[in-house]
C-alpha cells in the first residue's frame, strides 16, 4: 500500500515539475519574441518549412473532408428535405471546427514532428551548446522562429484547408448529388457569418502556438541518443494531438 502511495506521489510530483518546466519554457519564449535581436531570416525559413512540408497534405485532407461532409450531410439533410442547407453545413463544419482541428493535426504530424526531431538532434549533437558558447541564445535562434512561424502559418494553412474543403463539398454536392450551384453558395453566404470565420481563426492561431510550443519544448529537452529523439518526437505528436482536441473543446465551449 505504501509503495502504491509513494508511486502515485512521485508521478504527481513529476507531472507538476514537467508542467512547470513547460510553462517556464513558454514564458521564456514569449519574452524572447519581444526582445531584440530579432531573427527575421530564421522566422521566414521556418514559415517556408511549415508551409512547404504541410501544404500538399492540407490540400489533400481538406478536399476529402469537404467531399465526405457533403456526402454525409446530404444523407442526413435529405431525411427532412433540407438539402438546400448542404452548403452552410459543409462550410460551417469546416470553418468552425474541422478546418482548424484537422489542419492542426496534419501539420503536427508533418512539420511539428520534424521540428522536434531537428531540435532534438541539435541537442544531442551539441549544436545547441555550440550556439550558447558563441553567445547566441538558442531560444531566440531556434525556438522563437518556430513559434512565430506556427502562429502565422496555421491560420493560412487552415484557410487553404477551408477553401479546398468547400470546393470539395461543391464538387460532390453539385456534380455528384445534383444540388444547384446557386443554392450551394447562396445559402452558404446567408448562414456563414464573420463571427464563424473569427472563431476558426482564433482556434488556428491558438493551435499554432500550442503545437509549436509543445514540439519545440520536446525537442529542446529530448533525451540522449537516437532513442531519446525518437521518444521526444512521438511524445510531441501525441501530446500535441491530445492538446489540440482538448483545447478545441474548451475554446468551443467558451466561444459559443
Amino acid at each position: 500500500m505504501k509503495g502504491i502511495i509513494r508511486y502515485i506521489g512521485r508521478k504527481t510530483i513529476d507531472l507538476w515539475l514537467f508542467l512547470g518546466k513547460m510553462f517556464i519554457f513558454l514564458i521564456e519564449s514569449l519574452y524572447h519574441i519581444f526582445t531584440p535581436p530579432f531573427k527575421f531570416k530564421n522566422f521566414l525559413r521556418q514559415v517556408r518549412f511549415f508551409g512547404n512540408k504541410s501544404i500538399i497534405v492540407v490540400i489533400f485532407t481538406g478536399g476529402f473532408s469537404g467531399m465526405v461532409l457533403a456526402l454525409q450531410g446530404y444523407y442526413a439533410l435529405n431525411k427532412f428535405g433540407a438539402e438546400a442547407l448542404l452548403g452552410p453545413v459543409v462550410a460551417l463544419s469546416l470553418i468552425r471546427e474541422l478546418g482548424p482541428v484537422l489542419c492542426a493535426l496534419m501539420v503536427t504530424g508533418r512539420a511539428g514532428s520534424a521540428v522536434t526531431a531537428e531540435i532534438g538532434i541539435m541537442r544531442i549533437t551539441e549544436q545547441i551548446d555550440a550556439l550558447t558558447v558563441m553567445a547566441v541564445n538558442p531560444m531566440k535562434y531556434i525556438v522563437v522562429p518556430n513559434i512565430l512561424a506556427g502562429i502565422v502559418t496555421f491560420p493560412i494553412l487552415t484557410t487553404i484547408f477551408d477553401v479546398v474543403g468547400i470546393y470539395g463539398g461543391y464538387l460532390v454536392s453539385v456534380h455528384a448529388l445534383g444540388l444547384s450551384e446557386g443554392t450551394y453558395f447562396s445559402q452558404m453566404e446567408l448562414y456563414v457569418d464573420m463571427e464563424d470565420i473569427r472563431i476558426g481563426l482564433y482556434k488556428s492561431l491558438s493551435f499554432g502556438l500550442l503545437v509549436t510550443w509543445i514540439c519545440t519544448f520536446m525537442g529542446y529537452y529530448s533525451g540522449y541518443g537516437a532513442r531519446g529523439v525518437s521518444r521526444a518526437t512521438t511524445n510531441a505528436v501525441v501530446l500535441s494531438s491530445v492538446v489540440i482536441l482538448l483545447w478545441d473543446y474548451m475554446l468551443g465551449a467558451f466561444l459559443l
Binding site: I121, T125, E126, Q127, D129, A130, T132, V133, M134, A135
Partner: peptide, 18 residues
C-alpha cells in the same frame, strides 16, 4: 556572454550546424 566572447570551443563531434 561577455566572457564567452573570448572563448572558442571545439566540441567532440564538431557540433557543426548541419
Amino acid at each position: 556572454d561577455e566572457i564567452r566572447a573570448d572563448i572558442g570551443v571545439v566540441f567532440q563531434g564538431g557540433a557543426l550546424f548541419d
